[in-house]
Write a protein that binds this DNA or RNA. Structure first.
Lengths: 265, 265
DNA sequence: CGTCTGGTTCCATGATGTGGAACTCGACTT
DNA sequence: AAGTCGAGTTCCACATCATGGAACCAGACG
């Protein structure tokens, strides 16, 4: 009856008296994380439960509106998820999901951390974790700045989350890149390196570094980055750039569609 | 041990061997539908489960990321819901939720049914169920029309989902209302009656009727309506208006936050 | 320092979920 | 038309697992 070792299945946080629920939740999580219709068999061997059990659980989950079957009979997230999604803005939810990542970056670097997305043709900061230093950047959530001179803006430009505006590029400081060709060259480099940076280009003495966050389909949907005084950051550009890329990659992994063989969180 | 009559609990579709899951799902559904933090006790007496059971189930649901506790210890929807919401557009999900309602309206009236929302300062149709008549309106999903001469537009204007544009009101047909004062008077009437209509105001021979859909907080977030040839609809304005209001009310009920005493769907 | 409300842990009990095997259904072959 | 296979559901004896009353714990209030 025991499928494998009796006590290996759920290791952490000691679960007792909840086998059925753990399994049901595993099914739901698998469907939601995959984010594409999974057939009965997919779920059967993805989750490693006996056919009869799988069937019973899935039927119950469907009845309770946690899952639903599409026309082809495959399972997708059910009405409860639709309801939640209609009521909540997707960017707010991205912030929730990203919060732990931002905080880790904050702890690692000590600098102010930002998360940006494109809204229309503008870059807006949607979340911020403050610097541990006294000298940090102010809270500019919802403040939007020209894309071509902010690190997060450059990331979004470089990965196609945003198009480079056709007209003049505003000269915000003496260091701002205003030449289209030069900007394009930089953007190509951003893609090559996996992170973007601006030193004194948005404001004298302000340095920013950013990396791309990818959505479920692999498209770049947001950018994470840190910013702070140039003297403190200038020398750590590459170090922090790599760190950001790592962390952003992890966050992207969370958002990525997963089909096969993913350990239980 | 049996709380009530042994076979009364879950009547439809015969459930067997899934008590634990049904209960767990009930908890999740309650939290998601309420859409505001529910304390342990709220859930306890909302769902009528023994304390110990409630506790065990909630702990399991939290571990599996279906629920989460906020700072105050109350339960809210968990990371799995966030993930789903980040990946899906909220208007698309509204369409999913509304589809059954639209289809019922279509079946009731035989006319083309539309669902509209405001995007920025424009009204866009986001879903359509086609007329059973041959003479119906074409698919204008994503086509946006001036708000002051469409029934759904008037609904959104009337309930504050949209502001009346300050400038000239475009005269689309001879019947189009172009006078601001007259429009305001109509909008007030719309609120009084609970539905809006346009006869020949957008296109000669085209009549539309619409009613408001309210979101979780009670604000009007969308409008449902039917449209078709004036000869067929003109006489049924009030009848259909009431019908739409009823159906829209039902849909709104689905979206409304619910805190207490709601039967299991 | 006692008293409550709010919540978790224990544990004996048997109801409840389990899973192998039998069965059904439909599609595809021969 | 009969035969075969794969996908999925239903059955049912068994014992594992969820159950819930009671005891327990912790913090807030008086």
């Amino acid at each position: 009856m025991a499928r494998m070792d009796p006590q290996v299945s759920s290791s952490l946080t000691a679960s007792t008296g909840t086998q059925a629920i753990d399994r049901a939740a595993l099914l739901v999580a698998t469907v939601v994380r995959a984010d594409e219709p999974l057939s009965f068999l997919d779920l059967h061997d993805e989750c490693g439960l006996p056919k009869s059990t799988t069937s019973r659980l899935l039927t119950a989950l469907e009845r309770t509106e946690l899952l639903e079957r599409n026309a082809a009979g495959s399972y997708v997230a059910g009405p409860l998820f639709w309801l939640y999604a209609t009521r909540h803005d997707q960017w707010d939810e991205l912030v929730r999901l990203a919060r732990p990542t931002l905080e880790r970056i904050g702890a690692d670097t000590g600098e102010t951390v930002n998360l940006s997305v494109t809204r229309g043709d503008r870059v807006v900061q949607v979340a911020q974790v403050d610097s541990t230093y006294l000298l940090g950047t102010r809270d500019w959530t919802e403040v939007d700045v020209p894309a071509h001179c902010s690190a997060l803006g450059k990331v979004l430009l470089a990965y196609g989350g945003l198009a480079v505006p056709p007209g003049e590029l505003e000269q915000v400081t003496p260091s701002t890149i205003t030449d289209h060709a030069a900007l394009e060259r930089q953007l190509a480099q951003v893609v090559r390196r996996g992170y973007a940076s601006t030193v004194d280009e948005l404001e004298i003495g302000l340095t920013g570094i950013g990396a791309p966050v990818r959505g479920s389909g692999g498209e770049v949907i947001a950018a994470v980055g840190v910013s702070g005084p140039s003297p403190r950051l200038e020398r750590r550009l590459d170090e922090i750039g790599r760190l950001l890329n790592d962390r952003a990659e992890q966050l992207s992994g969370l958002l990525r569609r997963r089909t096969r063989k993913e350990g239980v969180a």
